[in-house]
Amino acid sequence: MPKLKSLDELKKLREQLQGDIKARTDSSTTITVGMGTCGIAAGARETMHAILAELESRGMDTHVTTVGCIGMCSKEPLVDIQQGDEPRVTYGNVNTEMVPRMIEEHLVQGNMVDEWVVGRVEG
């Protein structure tokens, strides 16, 4: 392992390493995937993997987590996006192909993808 020769090198190393502990540090954005039996049957695991891959390729500071059945089985896989104090937005029937557009428009540009939204809850 190379010895660190300056404070800048240390800070650069921190940048490289922070993904390893990101799950443990704060993030203003959380994406939650419904993982009830119905969600898993409808492909929630694949959707979650696609979300993780998309976020990683964009290097985004976002938490991904799972919850049990939300009770809207026909709309599974359900994905919630919570940004700061904004209302929580729920997307329905999210398959792997929808993930890049959802992340691009909602998280990067800051516009909800209206036609896929099934609900909004005030935070």
Binding site: I21, K22, M60, D61, V64
Partner: peptide
């Protein structure tokens, strides 16, 4: 090495 700020794992189990 990856420079992503994204969490590498979707969950960390701290035991």
């Amino acid at each position: 090495m990856n420079t992503s700020k994204t969490q590498k794992h979707r969950a960390d189990l701290l035991v």
